[in-house]
Simulated scan of single mutants.
Amino acid sequence: MQNSRNEQNTNTTHGPLVRIPQSAERIDLHCHSKLSDGSLSPKELVLRAHTMQLDVLALTDHDSLSSYEAACRAQQEFALTSPLLIPGVEISCVWHGFEIHVLGWNFAVDHAPLKALLAEQQDKRRARSVAIYEKLVQQGIPAQELPDVHALATGQVLTRLHFAQALVAANRCKSIQHAFDRFLGKGQCAYVSSQWCTIEEAVAAIRDAGGVAGLAHPLAYDLSNKWIRKLLIDVKDAGALAIEVVSSQQAPSQRQWLMELAQEYGFYLSVGSDFHHPGKYRELGRNLRPPEGVTPVWSLWQ
């Protein structure tokens, strides 16, 4: 089954919206701005990517396309010729009770059905945020120590990270991880289950907009080998063409296994730092050189 792909899963109706030159080498297809749960504005992110000498960048904020237009404006403002920006998004999905993330690239950002799906996702995020807020208040956390769930969401996609940051700032938790372990993680007192779209709905919306869909960080969902394989089958059956094989923070054995899975199930390879904020280990474009043996997803856009 190595490198096999069903014709029905190949999107050739629209063709690539952005062409990537074959000379491009430094590519990052997964990062976040402060309009999602990152710490840099789209402008700052583009400038950082330029400084890091990236050739291609996809901003993939959670359930939002706002950062793409802002990033394009920044490139025009500073007359930057690199990195080449391609439209991107990371859509939260529910699958057998797990939250799974589907990446989308190189689609029409004005496609009405995709925009409608993302608007529904953001409505669900807002409702979830209100429920988390209420649970934290019930746990005795003063309202003034929590994010304003209405004001904070202005221009942003509100996530649990914002609540974790507020709990740390109020000295209710020692760290972001402690906030998730104590309040916000699955099974904890302020956890609220998500009501996201299905993988099939996310992939269909991306493909209908002329884009390519892929599975983000396959090893991040705390799944057994059996369930990872089931996920890959379902993702492929939905029409996704790629999986994220290469990430910045990754053991060599993990990268090797993901490469073998991509070969076995016939996926293209994607690379992404999942950058959220400047740090020692997870940087834009760092340690993302793809291994030999799997065709990169950007070959579809060359």
Score class of each variant (00 low, 15 high):
residue 89 V to N: 00
residue 50 H to N: 12
residue 70 A to H: 01
residue 209 A to V: 04
residue 111 H to Q: 00
residue 189 C to N: 12
residue 300 L to T: 10
residue 56 V to A: 03
residue 19 R to I: 11
residue 78 F to C: 03
residue 3 N to P: 00
residue 117 L to A: 03
residue 119 A to C: 12
residue 174 K to M: 13
residue 86 I to Y: 02
residue 153 A to V: 05
residue 52 M to L: 11
residue 124 K to W: 14
residue 142 P to M: 05
residue 133 Y to E: 01
residue 169 A to N: 02
residue 244 E to Q: 11
residue 11 N to I: 09
residue 105 W to C: 00
residue 97 G to K: 05
residue 206 I to E: 02
residue 230 K to Y: 14
residue 147 P to T: 01
residue 56 V to K: 01
residue 297 V to M: 12
residue 166 A to Q: 02
residue 135 K to H: 05
residue 255 R to K: 14
residue 8 Q to G: 02
residue 250 Q to V: 11
residue 139 Q to F: 01
residue 125 R to S: 00
residue 86 I to V: 14
residue 192 V to Y: 09
residue 183 F to T: 04
residue 246 V to Y: 01
residue 61 D to Y: 12
residue 122 Q to G: 07
residue 1 M to N: 07
residue 218 P to C: 14
residue 181 D to C: 04
residue 125 R to W: 10
residue 178 H to G: 08
residue 231 L to D: 02
residue 114 L to M: 01
residue 205 A to E: 07
residue 198 T to W: 07
residue 190 A to Y: 06
residue 160 R to I: 03
residue 219 L to G: 07
residue 229 R to D: 09
residue 238 A to T: 02
residue 266 G to Y: 05
residue 188 Q to P: 06
residue 270 S to R: 01
residue 245 V to Q: 06
residue 234 D to C: 06
residue 278 P to T: 05
residue 282 R to K: 15
residue 28 D to N: 01
residue 105 W to L: 04
residue 198 T to Y: 11
residue 131 A to N: 06
residue 69 E to H: 05
residue 61 D to G: 10
residue 110 D to G: 09
residue 286 R to A: 15
residue 110 D to A: 14
residue 226 K to P: 00
residue 143 A to T: 08
residue 247 S to G: 11
residue 81 T to Y: 14
residue 108 A to N: 14
residue 230 K to G: 10
residue 265 Y to S: 08
residue 301 W to M: 09
residue 253 S to A: 15
residue 208 D to P: 05
residue 273 S to W: 05
residue 96 H to N: 08
residue 289 R to E: 15
residue 124 K to L: 15
residue 284 L to T: 05
residue 209 A to Y: 08
residue 127 A to F: 14
residue 105 W to P: 04
residue 24 A to K: 00
residue 3 N to T: 13
residue 83 P to M: 10
residue 244 E to P: 10
residue 127 A to N: 13
residue 242 A to N: 01
residue 51 T to I: 09
residue 3 N to D: 14
residue 109 V to W: 01
residue 74 A to V: 09
residue 5 R to G: 08
residue 121 Q to T: 03
residue 69 E to R: 03
residue 282 R to E: 13
residue 35 L to Q: 10
residue 64 S to L: 00
residue 15 G to M: 03
residue 166 A to P: 05
residue 67 S to G: 15
residue 142 P to S: 07
residue 93 C to V: 08
residue 199 I to L: 06
residue 23 S to K: 04
residue 59 L to Y: 00
residue 195 Q to D: 12
residue 203 V to H: 02
residue 95 W to N: 00
residue 37 D to P: 07
residue 33 S to N: 10
residue 201 E to K: 02
residue 39 S to C: 13
residue 247 S to M: 11
residue 169 A to F: 10
residue 225 N to G: 08
residue 282 R to A: 12
residue 83 P to L: 07
residue 82 S to Y: 15
